[in-house]
Structures are given as C-alpha cells and as structure tokens.
Nucleic acid binder design. Structure first.
Lengths: 129, 129
DNA sequence: GTAGCATATCGATATCCATCGAAGGGAGTG
DNA sequence: CACTCCCTTCGATGGATATCGATATGCTAC
C-alpha cells in the first residue's frame, strides 16, 4: 500500500512540470516550515501593486509580450525600479526575459500561477465548514 | 446590448459574496492602481510562512476550527506574535474568530481563497503563448 | 471582589524592501 | 573609436513589518 502510493507520487513528479508541484495544497494538510517558506516566496513575488500591474500589462499586450522600455512611463516609476521588479519576477519564474538588440522583452510563464491556484484550492471539507 | 451586459453584472454582484468579486482577473485586462492595491492586500496577508502554517493548521483541525491557545507552542512563536498574525488574517477576511469563554477559536473563511484563485486564473490566450 | 489564565495591545527593535539617483555594462550607429 | 540608448547594478534612504517583553483587558471560578 505504501509502495503503491510512492509509485503514484513518482509518476506525478515525472509527468508534471516541476514548478507546478512546488507546494502541497495549503488547506489539505499542515505545512511544515520548508513548504511554507516555498509558497511564501511565490506569494511575495506577486504581493506588490507595481508587479501586479506589470504582469497584467504583459498579459494584455496584443502579442503576449511587452518591451521594458514602455513600462516606466506607464507605471509612473523610475527605470531602475521597473528593472528591479522585472528581474524579481523573472527570478520567481512568472516572467521570461528575451533580449532583442538593445531592448528587453518579457512574457508570462503561466506554470507558477497554476501552482499557486492549486496550493490555494479549498477542499470540500473546509468549504462545508 | 450594453443594458443586457449591465444587468448580468448586477445579477452577479447580488448573488455572489462581495469579497469573492474583489478584483478582476489579473491576466485578462490591465489592472488600475486601485485594483492592484486591493489584490496586493489579499496576497500580502497570505505571504508569510507563519500565517500559511497557521491557516493550514486551522484547515487540518478535525473540527475545522482551532483554539489560539495551542498555536504559540506549535509554531514556535510568542503569544503576542501569534495574536498579531491571527488578527491580521481576520482583518483580511480569511479567518473568523469566535470567543468561547476565555478561549478564542478560529476557522477558515473560504471566499477569499476562491477570490485569489479567480484573480490568478490564466486565460487561454496567455497559456498558449 | 479577588485570583488566575487567555488574549490583545503597546513600545521597541531589527530586518526587509520599494524607491531613486548615479554609475556601469552592452548593443547598435556613425 | 566615440556616441547614444537601454538596461542592470550599486548605495542610500524611508517606510513597512515580524518579533518579543511588558502591560492591559477580559473572562471564569472561587
């Protein structure tokens, strides 16, 4: 029985993107410190108004990508600040950066969003109170 | 046509919990500053390892609720710190507090979790790149 | 009322982080 | 090469916040 469960887990680990399986569902089992830190890192990356607006602008761009050059004026922040937020989001795995000539272009990497959504899913036992 | 759309929105507003409709989907349209601040407030409330573990302990409790009295020892934080985190989560709308005698009991309020999940949903246009 | 426990609040501290100006690094242009 | 433009990195600063000890509040029991 234990072996069977282990095999299932191995299978899931091999067939799903590793970032999607970042953390177990928050409301299913008590998280240990390491799991909590991991999910916290993801949530902190999103928990900033400038970064949220930045992500929504990238996603809403007609081509699905956006040039960093237009962001300082659209967000009312200095170029240094925008660069800071962009590299933070790339490090967090929610954006990818591509250099083209002297411009840097960014687009959404959707896996981490799905990972957070899965981690925050409310199990039936909880939603029934 | 516009009227019809308006009526649908009114209907949704009346029939869903107001907190669930806190913010539009992040990756569907560019967020304005106010919408970004609102979603940020929710995400910040979750973006702390102690609070995440606290929430997972409440959800995993057999009765779906937990007494504040057992949390300082289980989380390795002072009583003052736990109290701070608990009141923050209540203010954020993810926990409800109920006083019973001298003990305070807490349980999960699932609406905000669903609100965040909806806000972070990845539209097909984005996930296809 | 008094004593004792559970919880909240206060005040202080240390750390984290968003922000910006300035300087540095690369890529294109002439 | 020199010059310009885009972007990153550095250093400094102000504000937010996690933490705790001490104190206050509130409830129960006697």
């Amino acid at each position: 029985m234990l072996l069977f469960h282990f095999d299932i887990c191995q299978y899931v680990l091999m067939t799903t993107p590793p970032l999607s399986a970042c953390c177990p569902a928050l409301l299913d089992h008590p998280l240990d410190e390491e799991q909590a830190e991991e999910l916290t890192r993801l949530l902190k990356a999103l928990a900033d108004p400038v970064r949220l607006r930045l992500l929504s602008m990238v996603a809403a761009a007609p081509t699905g990508e956006i040039c960093a050059c237009e962001l300082p004026s659209r967000l009312g922040r200095s170029q240094a600040t925008i660069s800071h937020h962009l590299s933070l989001l790339v490090r967090a795995g929610v954006l990818v950066r591509e250099q083209r000539g002297k411009w840097a272009w960014f687009r959404i990497l959707p896996e981490q969003f799905e990972a957070i959504r899965e981690a925050l899913a409310v199990p039936a036992a909880v939603s029934q109170g």
